[in-house]
Design a protein around this nucleic acid. Structure first.
Length: 626
RNA sequence: GGCCUUAUCGUCUAACGGUUAGGACAGAGGCUUCUCAAGCCUUAAAUCCGGGUUCGAUUCCCGGUAAGGUCACCA
C-alpha cells in the first residue's frame, strides 16, 4: 500500500500484515523498483490500525503511551506482534544507532513524536487515505516527451527529457518520444530530423518513437504507434464525436472575426476573454442542417461548473475554478485535433503514467483533467518543471542567449557536461556534489526534490563543468571530440600533441582552433618579452645559447615524453648552477612566442626537436640584432 | 486585468521545526611557480517584508510585496 502515490513527495511505503517476514520483503521490492520511496519504519499491526479492524484504546491510555498494554489485554492473541513492535523494534533501532554512531532520520522523527506526545500531549500522526496499487503497476512507469518539430531542441526541453529519462530508467519503465505536429502552419521542414539527431548526439536512448536511420529515413519503434500525431488523425475523431454525443462538447460555427470582436469587447470591459457559448444555444436540427451544408465549424469542449484540482508531483495540490476556464476547441475546422484533445488521447492510449512538462502548461491542465473525466479515464501523474530563465529572470529567449541544444553542442560543450549541467539545474540530490555520472543521476533522481522556482542559466558554471569533463577525457577521446572544431589536420602529430597540452587552458572545444595556430607556425613577437623580469637581455641571450646546445643533444626518446624533457632540462640547469627563471622564461617565450603559454617542456614536446631548435635560433638572432 | 505559480549568498543549490544556514560557479587574497592555466588554502556574500502557530520557524499557516507563467481554430 502506498500513501498518496500520485505525489511522490508524500509517498511513504507502508508494508502491511502479510505475515512474518513478508513486510521486509515487500519493502525490499519497493525500494528496488521505486528508489524514490522513503522507508521510515515498519511496525507490526499497522494494517489493523489502517483498516480500523482494531478498536483503539481509550484516549487516556493512548495519551499515556500505554495503548500497547491495552491492546495486549484486549487481544492477547496478538501478543507476539505487539511485543515485537514495542521491544524488538526499539532494540533494533538502538543497535543501528550505536553501530552507525548517529540517529537515523526515522529514529529522530520517532523520538520527536514521543517527546511531543509525552510532554505536550500531541497525538502521534496516523496514516489516512490509503490507496492500494499492485506492485507490477507501480513498476511500469512510462514517461514521454512530446516536442513539436518547429526548430532545434530547446534547452528546457532537454531538461524535461532528462527527467523523463531518469524516471523511466530508474524504474525499469519506458521512455517514449512522440511528435506533436498537429499545427500544419508551424511545420518546419527538417526539424524532426534535427531533433532526432540531437537525441543521438547526446546519446539519449528512448524505447519508443520515431528513430532516425543512418540513411536519413525515419522509422518507428514501439507497440503504441504511430508516434507522430499527424499520422494519428483518424484516432482522435471518434473521441470528439463521442464527446459531442454525450453532451460534453458542441459544434461551433462562430467565425474568427466574431470571436475577435467578442474578445476585444470583453477585454475593453476588463473581463477575461472567454467564449460566450453562442453556438451552445443552437437547436440540434440547425446544427445538423448547417453541418450538412458543409459550413466551416469547430468542436468545443463544454466545460462544466465546479472546481478541479490535481496533485502536482513537484508543486503539490493545485486548484482551479472551472468558471475561469474557456470552452476549448478540441477539433479545428481543418479536421485536425487540437493539442488538448490529442495529448489526452495519446497519453491514455500510450499508457503514459507520468507527464513531465514545463511550468507554462499548468494553466491548461484543468482542461485536460476535465477531458479525462469525460472520457472516463484515470489521470497520469502530472509534474510541472520550472522554467529556465535569462539572466534578467524572464523566460529563456533566443535574443538573450542560446536556447538550442545544438547551439551548445556547436560551441564545443560535451554532451555529458550539458546533460550534467541541465539535469542539476533546479535539482540536486546531494548537499555537496556537482559532477554526476548519468548512472548516478538515474539512481538518485527524485521528482519530489525538483525545485519549484525558475533557474537562471549560468554559462560560467557550464564552462567550468565542461572543463571538468574535458580534463577527464582520455587522450584519444579528447582528440576525437576536438576533431570537428579544428581546421588543421588531426592526423598531424603536432596538432594532436598541441590539443593535449592546451586542454588545461580550455573550457570549450571551439577554443582550440585559435590556440593551435602558434604551434603550427611561429608568430612574430617583441624581442623584449624574451627577457625575464628579474634579469636582462644579455642574460637571456646567454641562457638561450646555453640551453640550445643541450636540447640539440637530446635523444628522440627524451623528446617522446614531457616528463623526460623536464628532467633533462632541469638536470642541465642544476648541473650548470643556474636558476629556473633565467633559463626557462626565455626558452618558453622563444618556443611559444608569447608571454603566457604552456610550459617550455610541453612546448618542446609539441614542436619536436627540429622546430624547437629553429625557434630558439630565431630568438637568438632577435636578441643579437637590436 | 482575471486565474495560477514562485521566492535561501550576484548565480545554481543544501538544510522534511533545533546547524556557527552547508556546497558549487563567479569575486577577493594567499600558497605553488619561468608565465598562463590547473590544484590547494583562506575570505567576503543569503533565508523578500509583516503577522500568526510553536519552548523554538529558512521550513507550517495567513497577509503583503516582487517576479514569472497563462488567458488562440499554437503547441
Amino acid at each position: 500500500n502506498l500513501h498518496n502515490h500520485s505525489n511522490p513527495r508524500r509517498c511513504q511505503a507502508v508494508a502491511v500484515a502479510l505475515g512474518q517476514g513478508k513486510q521486509e520483503r515487500v519493502m525490499e521490492i519497493l525500494k528496488q523498483k521505486i528508489p524514490s520511496v522513503r522507508i521510515l519504519m515498519g511496525i507490526g499491526g499497522a494494517a489493523d490500525y489502517v483498516s480500523e479492524a482494531v478498536k483503539r484504546a481509550p484516549t487516556a491510555w493512548q495519551r499515556l503511551g500505554f495503548e500497547w498494554l491495552w491492546r495486549l489485554v484486549q487481544e492477547p492473541w496478538r501478543a507476539r506482534r505487539i511485543l515485537t513492535a514495542i521491544i524488538a523494534f526499539p532494540v533494533r533501532v538502538a543497535w543501528v544507532t550505536l553501530r552507525s554512531g548517529r540517529l537515523l532520520p526515522a529514529t529522530r522523527r520517532v523520538l520527536h513524536e514521543l517527546r511531543q506526545h509525552f510532554f505536550h500531549g500531541v497525538q502521534p500522526s496516523t496514516s489516512v487515505n490509503i490507496e492500494t496499487f499492485s506492485i507490477p503497476e507501480l513498476m511500469s512507469v512510462r514517461t514521454r516527451i512530446a516536442p513539436s518539430p518547429t526548430g532545434y531542441m530547446h534547452i528546457g526541453t532537454l531538461r524535461t527529457v532528462m527527467f523523463d529519462y531518469f524516471m523511466a530508467r530508474q524504474s525499469g519503465g519506458q521512455f517514449v518520444v512522440r511528435i506533436e505536429d498537429t499545427d500544419q502552419a508551424r511545420l518546419v521542414p527538417g526539424a524532426l530530423e534535427s531533433l532526432l539527431k540531437t537525441f543521438q548526439k547526446l546519446g539519449i536512448d528512448y524505447d519508443e518513437g520515431p528513430v532516425l536511420q543512418a540513411d536519413g529515413s525515419i522509422t518507428e519503434v514501439g507497440d503504441y504507434g504511430p508516434y507522430v500525431q499527424s499520422k494519428r488523425l483518424d484516432i482522435y475523431k471518434p473521441y470528439a464525436d463521442q464527446l459531442v454525443k454525450d453532451g460534453h462538447a458542441y459544434v461551433c460555427f462562430c467565425t474568427r472575426e466574431r470571436l475577435e470582436e467578442m474578445r476585444a469587447a470583453q477585454t475593453a470591459a476588463k473581463q477575461t476573454p472567454k467564449y460566450d457559448r453562442l453556438c451552445l444555444k443552437l437547436a440540434a436540427e440547425e446544427v445538423a442542417r448547417r453541418l450538412a451544408a458543409g459550413e466551416s465549424h469547430v468542436i468545443r469542449l463544454k466545460i462544466p461548473d465546479g472546481e478541479v484540482s490535481f496533485d502536482d508531483a513537484i508543486r503539490g495540490v493545485i486548484k482551479f475554478n472551472l468558471a475561469d476556464v474557456d470552452d476549448q476547441v478540441i477539433m479545428k475546422s481543418d479536421g485536425f485535433a487540437s493539442y488538448h484533445l490529442a495529448v489526452v488521447v495519446d497519453d491514455h492510449l500510450m499508457k503514459i503514467t507520468h507527464v513531465l512538462r514545463g511550468e507554462e502548461w499548468i494553466s491548461s491542465t484543468p482542461k485536460q483533467i476535465v477531458l479525462h473525466a469525460m472520457l472516463g479515464w484515470t489521470m497520469p501523474v502530472y509534474a510541472h518543471v520550472p522554467l529556465i530563465l535569462n539572466p534578467d529572470r524572464t523566460k529563456l529567449s533566443k535574443r538573450k542567449g542560446d536556447v538550442s541544444v545544438e547551439g551548445y553542442l556547436n560551441k564545443g560543450y560535451l554532451p555529458e557536461a550539458i546533460i550534467n549541467f541541465i539535469s542539476t539545474l533546479g535539482f540536486n540530490p546531494t548537499s555537496d556534489q556537482e559532477i554526476f555520472t548519468r548512472e548516478e543521476l538515474v539512481k538518485l533522481f527524485d521528482l519530489s526534490k525538483v525545485n519549484k522556482g525558475g533557474a537562471v542559466m549560468n554559462t560560467e558554471k557550464l564552462d567550468w563543468m565542461n572543463h571538468q569533463y574535458l580534463s577527464k577525457l582520455s587522450p584519444e577521446a579528447l582528440i576525437e571530440a576536438a576533431k570537428p572544431f579544428v581546421t588543421a589536420d588531426i592526423a598531424n602529430e603536432r596538432v594532436r600533441r598541441a590539443i593535449l597540452v592546451e586542454r588545461e587552458r580550455t573550457n570549450r572545444l571551439d577554443e582550440f582552433e585559435p590556440k593551435l595556430a602558434p604551434y603550427l607556425a611561429s608568430t612574430p613577437y617583441e624581442a623584449s618579452i624574451l627577457v625575464w623580469k628579474k634579469t636582462d637581455a644579455a642574460d637571456a641571450l646567454k641562457q638561450l645559447q646555453g640551453v640550445r646546445t643541450v636540447i640539440a643533444g637530446f635523444s628522440a626518446e627524451t623528446f617522446a615524453q614531457i616528463a623526460l624533457l623536464e628532467a633533462a632540462v632541469k638536470e642541465y640547469i642544476v648541473g650548470a648552477g643556474l636558476s629556473n627563471g633565467n633559463v626557462l622564461w626565455p626558452l618558453r617565450v622563444a618556443l611559444s612566442g608569447a608571454e603566457k603559454s604552456a610550459s617550455p617542456f610541453e612546448c618542446l614536446w609539441v614542436l619536436g626537436q627540429a622546430e624547437s631548435l629553429a625557434r630558439i635560433d630565431t630568438a637568438i638572432t632577435r636578441l643579437q640584432t637590436p
